[in-house]
Design a protein around this nucleic acid. Structure first.
Lengths: 150, 150
DNA sequence: ACCTATTCCCCCACTTCTTCCCACTATCTT
DNA sequence: AAGATAGTGGGAAGAAGTGGGGGAATAGGT
């Protein structure tokens, strides 16, 4: 299913000001539209989806089995934290207090485009995560190559 | 799969200027078009793809689930590291700060054509890598010969 | 229901980085 | 030797990110 030609990619460091405003990178704005959904993400970051994309993602989550306690928990984790936020005239969003706390955000924030979502990270957490991943990347590529995914 | 008649081949040393601009070898330009994607590569270099080629790669990555920690990490590594850059009137691209840092680039940079992509290396890292590989090449050939790959 | 206090949003100003354009040099060609 | 072409460098206009003030809206308490 192809929605748009562009996907969200790239890494940008922006700052969260005292009013909890966060400006989005210019490159993301057209793709994101004027309203987004922000939610708790995995690995201690936030996920931000364009509205169109969010609907697909929410649907996928709903299709996960209700019977299992762990997927039920996973659902709650993602869905209960979701907020619809609109983008102001300067291309900024307002990050709710509880999400800011969840991701441990302070002034320095990293916005990372990953396919159909943007991830919002505390800068320090991000760099730590990245160095950890970089070490594994070569081995990972090899493994994916073996199963023919790449 | 070859789409065009030319493959990207050859090795060139160019310089990254103070504005993080990098001119592409003339030989690559027609093949690359006027827009490319640059991303984190393996072995500490950067990969540069023509748009057409990138789309294939990106599609493969889409199939990796974000529910698993390792593929999630690999996705972040590649996708958040990717940038769509266009080539200016002088045939140069702009290398983002974080990619420059990742590959440890300074002024001397090597551009190496590898089939359907161009790799961008710190010159020193490149020469070191090459000498290391050359030593292994004989042994490698033997191994590949044994399993009938060559 | 009213007043107060806080949050939020729009607008404007400032600063820094990017982008575009032009110019210089070196090398290769004719 | 002159001309062309590739690679490199720098200056100036423009845009993107950031920060703050004031008015509107919302919530909360009495």
């Amino acid at each position: 299913m192809l929605h748009k030609t562009n996907m969200l990619i790239g890494e940008y460091t922006h700052s969260l000001d005292t009013k909890k405003r966060l400006s989005l990178p210019k490159k993301f704005r057209t793709e994101l539209g004027k309203k987004v959904v922000v939610t708790r993400g995995l690995d201690n970051c936030l996920f931000m989806y364009p509205m169109s994309q969010w609907k697909d993602t929410a649907k996928k989550l709903q299709n996960l089995s209700f019977a299992q306690a762990d997927t039920r928990g996973f659902n709650r984790f993602i869905l209960s934290g979701a907020v619809e936020v609109d983008i102001d005239s300067a291309g900024r969003i307002l990050v709710p207090e509880y999400l800011k706390n969840f991701a441990g955000l302070n002034t320095k924030v990293v916005l990372a485009g990953v396919q159909d979502r943007v991830e919002i990270w505390n800068e320090k957490t991000w760099t730590e995560y990245k160095t950890r991943i970089e070490k594994q990347a070569d081995a990972m590529a090899e493994k994916l190559g073996e199963i023919g995914a790449l």
